[in-house]
């Protein structure tokens, strides 16, 4: 049995089935990420002054990932246009680059997470937070020793370092700071349980990364085994590519907001 409007557009909506489906799905995705952004705003404006971290995350990998997604969006739409115009080789090249970009994104994100897991912070009773690299051989049951980051992400952390002496603020100098365990109310590496910010950060970027992986799997299928349809039913294949592209651009759209919200502002 032939399913109606699988390839041709339905006269009343002007859309074929998959396109109608993907737009409805994307509308629901707006609400999914909208809920998370809303939670982020609520937690951020409710945080006590001076405590919410500002630019605590490494900017380099995030910027690289932004560029990777912009490039992949361009190649995705070029791949779709090439397939539509009957340029199979160009379609293969552009869509292949999109898949490679998706892999690069996941690789860079993993590297970034690895970096986060290797950075530590202590929170003192007065809510001062000092972040830095852990000196493992000088950390024991009685004390925690850090080489503090030159740029602290909270106002209280910056003030604390100033009090410790001018030398601590100079970048490049590895001044160690030892904290007595009894003065420390929280100590861990940057994992979701470290702070509210990191809970939100890992939830949002983790969910986004899952979307990237899902999109990459579909695009890889259309680039590889699924591309056989190009020779048997090109219009249907181009429609599939368009739907995958719409999802991929939505993934970029979400990142466009995640990047400034989590890394810059």
């Amino acid at each position: 049995m032939q399913i109606p409007y699988e390839v041709e557009a339905r006269p009343d909506t002007g859309l074929y089935n998959a396109k109608l489906g993907i737009w409805l799905f994307l509308a629901s995705e707006v609400m999914l990420f909208g809920g998370l952004f809303s939670a982020y705003i609520f937690l951020r404006i409710g945080a006590e002054p001076g405590l919410w971290p500002h630019q605590i995350l490494e900017l380099g990998p995030a910027f690289a990932n932004t560029m990777v997604l912009i490039i992949s969006s361009v190649t995705m739409v070029m791949g779709w246009a090439s397939a539509k115009l009957g340029e199979y080789k160009k379609f293969k090249i552009f869509t292949g680059i999109t898949v490679l970009c998706a892999l690069a994104f996941v690789g860079i994100k993993s590297y970034e997470y690895h970096g986060d897991f290797n950075r530590y912070g202590v929170i003192l009773a007065d809510k001062t937070q000092v972040t830095g690299e852990l000196v493992k051989d000088k950390t024991n049951d009685r004390q925690i020793t850090l080489i503090p980051d030159a740029k602290q992400s909270t106002e209280l952390g910056r003030e604390y370092l100033k009090k410790q002496g001018e030398g601590a603020e100079k970048s490049g100098e590895e001044q160690e700071l030892a904290f007595d365990r009894k003065d420390v109310v929280w100590f861990s590496n940057f994992v979701p349980s470290y702070s509210t910010f990191f809970s939100v950060y890992f939830t949002m970027t983790g969910l986004h990364a899952l979307h990237v992986i899902g999109g990459a799997v579909v695009i890889f299928y259309l680039w590889g085994p699924g591309s056989r349809m190009y020779f048997t039913d090109r219009k249907h294949f181009v429609n599939r590519l368009e739907v995958a592209g719409l999802f991929w651009h939505f993934v970029e759209l979400v990142w466009i907001f995640l990047f400034p919200v989590l890394y810059l502002l």
Binding site: T13, G14, L15, W23, L24, L26, A27
Partner: peptide, 11 residues
């Protein structure tokens, strides 16, 4: 198409 515009405006 209008249908898509209205879907996204609603979202």
């Amino acid at each position: 198409k209008k249908f898509v515009h209205w879907t996204m405006i609603t979202a």
